[in-house]
Simulated scan of single mutants.
Amino acid sequence: MAWNEPGGNKNDPWKNRGGKDQGPPDLDDVFKNLFGKFSKGGGNGGSGKSMGKLGISLLVGLLVVIWFVSGFYTIREAERGVVLRFGEFYTEVEPGLRWKPTFVDSVIPVDVQSIRDQASSGSMLTEDENVVRVQMEMQYRVVDPFRWTFAVENPETSLSQALDSAIRYVVGHSEMDDVLTDGREVTRQRVWEELQSIIEPYNMGVSIIDMNFRDARPPEEVKDAFDDAIAAQEDEQRFIREAEAYAREIEPRARGRANRMNEEAQAYKEQIILEAQGEVARFEELLPQYEQAPQVTRDRIYLETMEAVYGNTSKILVDSQNGNSMMYLPLDKIMNSSGNSSQNLRNMVPNLQVPDLQNNGRGSNNTSPSSGLRNSRFNNGGE
């Protein structure tokens, strides 16, 4: 049976101590007995009184030493100390070993060099009434320990709530495609600016170092469809870049061909103009000769024209004035020969009149085989 069970249990350790019915000791009686001993010691004469004073002095000295030693503290290199005197701001202290009067001053160390993180995520409604899940992370640093400690009641909670408000405001004023695809950087920048405008009136003594857009995705029910849409947009951008690269590659070549064709056309134009001017000059030179002998000049012009026309054909002119004998010539070999085929034909057949293939039938003495052409007949393949 336990000693504290009801029913008159006599196993209570504070009862029957020393054979008497006794309860737990009283603290007032303990202190009274202690000071009574010091009083009795003082009643034994001067030595007892001095011993009592010495004990009190030692006790007070020990308490003073403990109080003095307890006042030493250390501020680390990355921290600044905010000193409060009787609960009111007193000063700020730099890193190092410091001392403060215990029970008078209190010190709150604040880290002012470390980069702190604050994340926020949640499902949000966009401007086009779609639901997206956004996760962003903020990095900040404390620049004013006093403002960080006393500007707001809980600065970390206030920052978290301000970040949530900024994200929801920006996402609520953006379309879903902008948040999920190519507008992520713009959204990140807008959230940063909105957060700055929210915390600026509070003057919390913090500086926003960076804002990271960690994730943005649609609800799981439509995730596959949005993945396909994003892949299609990426393919579109890729095709556009490939088309631009092809245009940059083909455009210089097209410009080169166009310039070459323009130059060729210009050269052809100049050639035709010069040829026409040459013909005009030639006819101007023939005009006096025509006035002197019109019929002879017409016949000569006719014969020269026919010589130029038939000089580019496969016809062979044979002089039949000395007889109508049929001649068999290796015409295929003659026509496939080089530019001296006319001279070869003249050497083979003395009476054969053919146009010169190199100078279009004109001899070196500017004469033409007009006499042979008048009384000749055209043979094609031995006819």
Rank of each mutant, 00 (worst) to 15 (best):
P219N: 04
E383N: 13
I56G: 08
R76Q: 06
E244Y: 07
A276H: 13
M348E: 06
Y202N: 05
T187L: 15
S325C: 09
E200R: 14
Y268G: 05
G96P: 05
Y290P: 05
I198A: 02
V30R: 06
F239M: 13
L62V: 06
W67K: 04
D164W: 08
V110T: 00
P101V: 02
L317V: 14
Y302V: 14
V132Q: 07
V30W: 10
V152R: 02
I115W: 01
S165H: 00
Q358A: 03
N322I: 10
K333F: 09
N359K: 06
N154V: 00
A265C: 03
V60D: 00
L84D: 00
F72I: 01
G96W: 05
R260P: 02
D299S: 09
S120A: 05
N375P: 01
E88V: 07
V186M: 13
G183F: 07
D319W: 11
V171S: 12
L180K: 02
L163Y: 07
A247S: 04
E137L: 15
E304G: 01
I272K: 15
P288Y: 02
S114W: 01
S371Q: 13
E236K: 14
Q189I: 11
L180R: 04
N324T: 14
A119T: 09
D117R: 05
M1S: 13
E221P: 00
W67I: 03
K53R: 11
Q189R: 08
K53H: 10
T187C: 06
N262I: 07
D210W: 08
G172V: 03
V132T: 07
H173I: 09
R217K: 00
N262P: 00
A267D: 07
P369F: 06
R214N: 10
E94F: 08
P288F: 05
D12F: 11
Y302D: 12
I66V: 07
S364D: 11
Q118G: 05
V112Q: 01
F226P: 04
F283V: 09
A119D: 14
K20I: 04
D356V: 05
Q292R: 13
A247C: 01
E221V: 09
I198Y: 01
G323P: 05
F283R: 14
N324G: 15
N344W: 13
T367Y: 08
G23F: 00
I167M: 15
Q233P: 01
N44G: 15
V93R: 05
E304S: 12
L180E: 03
